[in-house]
Amino acid sequence: MSVLFPDGASAGDVVVFWILAAMVAFFAVFTITRKNPVTAVMSLVATFFGLAAMYATLSAHFLAVLQVLVYAGAITVLFIFVVMILNREEVTPLSFRPLRVLGVLAGVYLFVKFVDVVAVGMPTVVPATPSDTFGTVAAVGDLLFRDFLYPFEAISILLLVAIVGGVVISRSHQKEVAANLAADYRKQVHELASHDYPGAAEEPAPEGHH
């Protein structure tokens, strides 16, 4: 029993933790086992919310809000868009190929080892509740703009690059393909015109574009 109810934790904390933990775990498993992608996205959102709540209980207020805004907000919307574009259901969602199952089992082994080794030796004291200003926007912002300014700017540039990259990748290639074809054709015509006839050179075989 002392596993579920560790010493030093208030009952409310414990209950909230277990409910949230169950929710997160359940919805995570739900996500990866759904046939319908929309359902998967929805349960993913639920996972995110659960995590956000958990962050709040951990006094990470800024991050909790960020989780909802960015993850449950922007990223989920992205996923929904793409799901709408390519909505296909699968017949058998999970593919149990031997090597992959082995991989999963390896992961399980690592987990078991982790619990066995680390959990055994770790102190099971409930950490002290941090101060009210811990994890607030001001506090985190202070750190971000002072000690971690460089990573902050770097990640901004990364986001910029990602935007550009996303746009580039999803451009329509139709115009480009047409332009290439036109260029090839013009080259052929030019070569034919510059050879002396009759029978001076063979016609260049038209090249298929790859």
Partner: peptide
């Protein structure tokens, strides 16, 4: 590892 749908 185990899902076929790239989105998932």
């Amino acid at each position: 590892l185990l899902r076929r749908n790239a989105l998932i």
